[in-house]
């Protein structure tokens, strides 16, 4: 496994720029998530790293080795990236064992070595006894595992996973993700995971790279990007947010609907405050916070999202409370913001 450096990468599709002047660094053994909406260039970046598309400018290095510039230095088959595309793409005509052994070059490995590695990989993904099955005889989760094993078998410098879990149902997805990430950590893999699932990005990686319009919008640890988003928009892409109009006074005090100082007066707002719903404490006793009326409850089982209308805000306030919630719609409640005050001035 190796470190990865992408610097000033630009990729064009015809006249359209898909990735522009993008730079990222990954330490050896680091797992990064690429998170962003559809069409932001996540998959394109991954494919550029794998050598499947040719960048217009910029450089890609594996460790100290330059593998890609505008004129491709190394073709994909010489890069040694373990690429797991969307939905696995297993070779339909090959068995599980042959799929896994596909990338093992007969000139590099002896027959028995190939058998050993295949055997080891099958063990690693917990699919002993299914060596001779064809992909069509596997479940979705099993197919993803085989695709991962196939990528790992070549001892890649870098693992590239393109939404590998997207086709799976929620429970299986969580399980398999935990399993795969555990496996990658165990092997010390440097990996990039493309996802549009914000929880998946936060839970499985050391670093979350948020992409917008072919650029890196924010790059940091999961905590950093969640707790300290650089914009309201970015905040929204890593989790539920509440964006409320606010005014910051010269003295540094921030006025917003839930502040103790009271809301800013109408027309004098200079920016926004970004609040996570779980940072709001909801109580029924009158002595705490801003008064509001509970207008809606979304019950999720492990928690619940309350929608509260308050006089200070034209937008209703959403607050997450641990379930089972003993609230009823129409009830009078009091809201208190306990988290950091993230103020963003209006541009």
């Amino acid at each position: 496994m190796t470190s990865l450096s992408v610097s000033h990468l630009t990729v064009n599709f015809g006249s359209r720029t898909v990735i522009s002047d993008l730079s990222i660094e990954l330490r050896q053994g680091e797992i990064a998530s690429l998170l962003g909406p559809s069409g932001c260039g996540k998959t394109t970046l991954l494919r550029a790293i794998a050598g499947l598309i040719q960048p217009a400018s910029g450089a890609i290095r594996f460790g100290s080795q330059l593998v890609g510039v505008s004129s491709v230095v190394l073709p994909p088959h010489k890069r040694g990236t373990g690429y797991v595309p969307q939905q696995g793409a297993l070779f339909p005509h090959l068995t599980v064992a042959k799929n896994i052994a596909f990338g093992l070059d007969k000139n590099t490995y002896t027959k028995s070595e190939i058998a050993d590695i295949t055997h080891e990989m099958i063990g690693l993904i917990g699919m002993k006894g299914m060596e001779d099955r064809l992909p069509s005889q596997l479940s979705g989760g099993q197919q993803t595992r085989v695709a991962l094993a196939r990528a790992l078998a070549i001892k890649p410098k870098l693992i590239l996973l393109d939404e590998p879990f997207s086709a799976l149902d929620a429970v299986l997805r969580d399980e398999l993700r935990t399993e795969v990430v555990g496996l990658l950590r165990e092997l010390g893999s440097t990996a990039i995971l493309v996802t549009h699932d914000r929880e998946e990005a936060l839970v499985s990686s050391d670093r979350v790279i948020l992409m917008r319009d072919g650029k890196v919008a924010q790059n940091g640890t999961p905590e950093e990007v969640y707790e300290a988003p650089i914009s309201p928009e970015i905040a929204a892409s890593t989790g539920d947010v509440l964006i409320l109009p606010a005014q910051q006074s010269g003295s540094g005090a921030t006025f917003y609907p839930l502040s103790l100082e009271g809301a800013a007066s109408v027309g004098s707002e200079t920016g926004y405050v970004v609040i996570r719903p779980e940072e709001i404490r909801v109580s029924t006793s009158a002595d705490m916070g801003v008064e509001g009326s509970l207008i809606h409850i979304d019950y999720y089982g492990h928690d619940a999202m309350l929608t509260v209308s308050v006089a200070q805000s034209s937008t209703p306030i959403k607050a997450r409370v641990a379930g089972p919630a003993d609230f009823t719609v129409g009830q009078k409640v009091f809201l208190q913001h306990l988290g950091p005050v993230r103020y963003f001035s209006r541009q």
Partner: peptide, 26 residues
């Protein structure tokens, strides 16, 4: 599917071998 060809490429197969080992059999 082009995806299969790409995966094969990242697994160290040159274009001609992708053709022989993936495209033709399928």
């Amino acid at each position: 599917s082009p995806q299969l060809k790409e995966v094969a490429a990242t697994l160290g197969k040159s274009k001609s071998r992708v053709t022989m080992q993936v495209v033709f059999p399928i």
